[in-house]
Design a binder for these strands. Structure first.
Length: 433
DNA sequence: TCTGGGGTCCTAGGACCC
DNA sequence: TCTGGGGTCCTAGGACCC
């Protein structure tokens, strides 16, 4: 049996831990540049605030119901996610971290007979150790565990756990799962299935394999088999290295000036370098894109994109920034108001296994760069991101965030203050209270 | 005025090899 | 009049996930 553990309204729950007065209050969390709603508490969902809606479109609703609004704080969410995952790992050794707020557990080795009671124990423990509420779906396959988890949220919120252990409980969950809520059915397939009078997961599993494979392809067939209780996806215990890495941002204001776009692009390329070095990979290709604001239909639109090859795979910040700026010069056109850019690297290979070129005159430079960036990364880890950076990155490229909560768990200065008369070293402060 | 940022896998078609 | 049969690799696009 597998369990899918899912943190309830994860980002909103993270914010609430440190502001308990927000219990039972509607909370939303915003995307970069405070653009769209990307997370909602139950109370915000009850106000019919949709996922992904731009903040400015629901401004009056926010005011009317006194919804608490947060900019996204990924340092906080990432750290709390680690705590949840570590806590789960302490309870069940075999686990796959599936996303920032979800994990699959392998319960087969566990000496428990009452899975429902064990699910409750996990829930209580995570709540006690981290302050994050979680829900569990337990079932013979990952796709069914996903469906069981969704069933909890839709029909058994108070209990927080649902177990699919036989045909009877499977049919309950399948019949209660609309096709578009199945793990593996998106908007496109959802519309297609609705057009064929297939409303629920229960309807879908009745269809013949040949029909499924013809229309939903091999991935769809695996999904249906999993819904029928046949394991197609095992647990992936080791996180495998990424095959591509992308850093992209919208600009808070549209940019027209090449030098400002250069700063942004250099920053994205440098960030790709950090990610590459972190997973010990080198890139063979760099892909740059730059475009105008597609929402402003009256503005002239332009979508520029360019792929360049490195002569030898690299993760040097110098190489990446140089190549990104070269690509930028090739696609930049005067007279447009640019809104977003991004750098993607691909053709990734392990750093100790790169194919070099014959008569490689750059080898000394590569070795030197490697040492330089080991030092740069170490300094930035210790002193803060971008303390050491490439000059083209400018003074430090940031997004627009007005409502960000403190980094309670990752910065000394942001530690939650319980008694202002005592600082974090336990020293008494005079005259501050 | 204001609209996110990452990833994965599969398939079809074209260019090329013998 | 009649024009083979087997591969690989790469890319773009489309589906999906959080």
């Amino acid at each position: 049996m597998y369990a899918l553990v899912d943190c309830n309204n994860f980002y909103a729950s993270c914010e609430r831990i440190f502001q308990p007065k927000l219990k039972k209050k509607p909370i939303v969390v915003l995307s970069n540049n405070d653009g769209c709603i990307i997370a909602r508490s139950d109370e915000a969902k009850a106000l019919n605030i949709p996922m992904g809606v731009p903040l400015y479109q629901i401004e009056s609703l926010i005011k009317q119901h006194d919804v608490k609004v947060f900019s996204s704080n990924y340092a906080l969410y990432g750290d709390l996610s680690n705590r949840v995952m570590q806590s789960l790992h302490a309870l069940v050794p075999q686990l796959e971290v599936y996303s920032i707020d979800e994990a699959f557990l392998d319960l087969r080795q566990m000496p428990y007979h009452d899975l429902y009671a064990f699910g409750q124990e996990i829930r209580q423990t995570i709540w006690q150790w981290t302050g994050i509420p979680v829900s569990l779906g337990i079932a013979p396959t990952k796709t069914l565990a996903k469906a069981a988890n969704r069933y909890v949220k839709a029909h058994a919120k108070e209990t927080g756990v649902f177990v699919i252990e036989d045909n009877f409980t499977a049919d309950i969950a399948l019949a209660a799962t609309p096709v578009e809520d199945i793990w593996g059915v998106g908007r496109r397939y959802g519309r297609f299935l609705a057009g064929h009078q297939i409303q629920t997961a229960f309807d879908l599993v009745q269809m013949p394999d040949s029909w499924i494979q013809k229309h939903l392809k091999i991935v769809g067939l695996r999904m249906v088999r999993e819904l029928r209780g046949e394991i197609c996806y095992g647990l992936e215990l080791e996180p495998h290295p990424k095959k591509g890495i992308c850093v992209s941002r919208s600009f808070s204001n549209t940019l027209t000036d090449l030098s400002l776009i250069e700063e942004a692009v250099a920053t994205f390329a440098a960030r790709c370098g950090e990610k590459l070095r972190k997973q010990k990979s080198c890139a063979n290709l760099l892909h740059l894109f730059l475009f105008t604001n597609p929402h402003r239909e009256n503005d002239p639109q332009y979508f520029g994109s360019k792929v360049l090859h490195f002569s030898a795979a690299t993760h040097s910040g110098f190489d990446l920034v140089t190549m990104a700026l070269k690509a930028l010069k090739l696609i930049f056109k005067e007279g447009y108001r640019y809104k977003k850019a991004g750098v993607m690297v691909s053709g990734l290979v392990p750093e100790n296994n790169t194919q070099t070129v014959l008569f490689d005159i750059n080898e000394p430079k590569r070795l030197k760069d490697h040492r330089v960036f080991q030092t740069v990364d170490a300094l930035n880890r210790k002193l803060g991101r971008d303390t050491i950076r490439i000059a083209t990155q400018g003074k430090g490229w940031t997004t627009h965030q007005t409502q960000r909560s403190p980094c309670y768990t990752t910065r000394w200065e942001d530690l939650l203050v319980i008694d202002e008369r005592i600082d974090f070293r336990g020293k008494h402060l005079r005259g501050l209270y």
